[in-house]
Design a protein around this nucleic acid. Sequence first.
RNA 1: GCGGGCGUGGCGGAAUUGGUAGACGCAUCAGACUUAAAAUCUGCCGGCCGCAAGGCCGUGCCGGUUCGAGUCCGGCCGCCCGCACCA
Length: 865
Amino acid sequence: MSRYNPREAEPKWQAAWAERDAFRAHGPGADSPRPKYYVLEMFPYPSGRIHVGHSRNYTMGDVVARYKRARGFDVLHPMGWDAFGLPAENAARDRGVHPGQWTYDNIAVMRDQLQRLGLALDWSREIATCDPDYYKHQQAIFLKLLERGLAYRKTAKVNWDPVDQTVLANEQVIDGRGWRSGALVVQRELDQWFFRITDYADELTDAIDGLERWPDKVRTMQSNWIGRSRGAEVRFPLLDADLAARFGRTIDVFTTRPDTLFGASFLALAPDHPIVKALAEDDPEIDRFCHECARMGTSEEEIEKAPKRGVDLGIKVRHPFDENWEIPVWTANFVLSGYGTGAIFGSPAGDQRDLDFARKYGLPVTPVVLPPNTDASTHTIEDEAYTGHGTIYNSKFLDGLPTEDAIERAIEELESRELGKGATSYRLRDWLVSRQRYWGCPIPVVHCSDCGVVPVPHDQLPVKLPEDVTFDHPSNPLERHPTWKHVDCPECGKPARRETDTLDTFVCSSWYFLRFASPFSADKPFEAGDVEHWLPVDQYVGGIEHAILHLLYARFFTRALNDSGLMNMAAGEPFAGLFTQGMVTHETYKSAEGKWLSPDEVEYRDGKPVEIATGRPVTVGAIEKMSKSKKNVVDLDAFIESYGADAARWFVLSDSPPERDVEYTDSGVEGVWRFIQRLWTTVTALPETAPGPMTEADIASGEALDIRRSAHKALKSVTESIEGFRFNSAVAQVHDLVNVLRKYEPADPVGIAAKAEALGILVRVIAPFVPHLAEECWSRLGGEGLVIDAPWPEADPALLVEDTVTLPVQVNGKRRAQIDIAKGMPEDEVKSVALALDGVVRATEGLTVRKVIVVPDRIVNIVAG
RNA sequence: GCGGGCGUGGCGGAAUUGGUAGACGCAUCAGACUUAAAAUCUGCCGGCCGCAAGGCCGUGCCGGUUCGAGUCCGGCCGCCCGCACCA
């Protein structure tokens, strides 16, 4: 019996698909009227080689692409390279190879690997973001945003990564450390470029509700990240006329609880608030305090442990609702300059931090919110603030109002006195996009001492990166380049300085999905008609690690480009459906010397892991996601060489639900190999003279009918599983069908025809998962053309319904018997049959039957007591 | 602290509107074929009692709703993820 040989079959079918240009997307203006479907996996960073872990993401997208194609859609399934980034510069430094060379070499290797995986990609649309043909459009987009005021330059306190020698966006700082280097980030005042993402904070929040095909988790994370909170801005008039003259008439404060204004006992300003800074110049105590705060770390732990501290600034403000009420102003270490106005009013009874602070410094504590079902005469605040809602008291005109109403009433009063207004505050900051790195998209402006910031004229784009750069120093090679930055001002012609910052690589990935829809446009980033046709992406597949950064930036970009007139994308949202897939994990190994070992350096001898090269024992570590740093990767080429691409595809989809991690094990892979061979044997067991698989078998009864039923039922459930992104269930259902078919050995023509039909269904159903094996089987079965061109089969409804059904019979909720009945048997009849069953008689002995519940064709429950 | 998710055999997991808990796969064990091994095939496989028929228990814990709960409700416990002195 012949075995299925993927090494022969896979290249053969890949060549057949390529020859037909089978996966080219057609798009607007095509003759075919097929509806569009855009499926996209987050494009890879070309870091070296693809391992089995990476392949899961692409395989999931490919299943969707091939399935939708079989369903008659015009599918756009492109691939490209997120090719700018710091690792290329590190490689340049460590190995003396140019970042561009390193990147393009990696791309060549990885493209080849993806092609061997048999992905149904339209390679004619391939893009690399480091290609001047890509980044020139990005520069044009930048200039458009600059023109619209959505890109701007300002001096700001920014996150500086001392290892990577560059600034980072807030989103790229995790627990006070740089997301790539892991170095503690320091704050620096620098002149930097920003995108005005905060202009869209409201829209980006509101639209989250409409993202119905996104995971709830991601939606929540985005919403929390933007962090919209509604409340009021309150202006506290400064009492000292001198101070008012210096700092403005009022100190402004943001609060979500203006209803608690009558509980105010102090104001607290951030240590780097302008007023505090000014006062610190004359007051050594304030100055010392500010310096201490600046030194304090930003890590979670330090913040948690740091006690509330502050210094009385010695100035006073007036309460907005009471001419005679003076409130002291402090500076405090728990007030953040970056949020709201950098100042708060302390309402100790309703906020734990304010309470801790007030208790420490002996400031008054007046409860103003009465919790529900509490007596005003006995309610007191000791060491625990009441932060909930309730009824307002001790608050003059707000007394008796529920807190929600009091918030509105207080805002009205503030507005009528012109001492405040309703306001919204956000956690989100503007996106810092400039990086002091070489391998990125140059920001296309020139700094002229006379004309200021001057955009590079369109006909001079792209501003190309210079080739002759060195990486012998950690600072920006563009800055150090002897000539590159020296240019004449495009406006006045005088000597000027080219901008040496490049754009954050997340800018490249904020619009690549638009370029995929229109990759052939030479003069424009994209043709509006193309993106309006293809977008939104119907199904986006990627890792959860991009839940905030990339997805938020892309949502912002789509809106900014819409508003800039470059397109008019009705949906507004770039990604209609999002799926965040789990990782492939693997055991980790460490040698006797404590070095990480890759799985192919380790083997088990007598059940004990040893290092093959030395024979010494190996320590097995945690099961973690495959990553280069831990070396627990299985190279895709090596895997394909041994088991084939289909085995890799089938494996990464088996067992675990797609959104969860799946563990790579050798035995699991062996299981996949067995399955592939069994499937092949099942197909080849059918006589070659059997009628083609498209033949409708004319069968009404017996085993042959059961076979047809099994096939049509499996077809229905696999289809539903694919639609619902439950690939592991689809795999199990296919296993089931194969188990049924391989045991069925028909002798007569009717049975053979039924099996042929069932196999024909099976092969078309597995085609999105294991496309090469499916082609080989299709060909063996005598199917017409290629299986990729065969339409998705339709389940025959008549074969999905059984004429008999097995009914479990319960007594008091416990299963005691079962009966086979004709479907749709009248309830009375079911009842009497059920009551006569042996098991039921035994279980009801000595009891009175009180009630019989019959759920038609599902279950019988007899209540007895 | 706030927000989101999860908890089912030795393991990964299935059970989508409440209706036979454990599909499918992996591992282990037993058997067939073989001189032997590999490969392949067959079978058992949640726990306890029983020769068997069968019975009892069982989806993190406690309680509730229901004829019936892995699924719904309330309260705990544990784990994972995100955010965090955010006013």
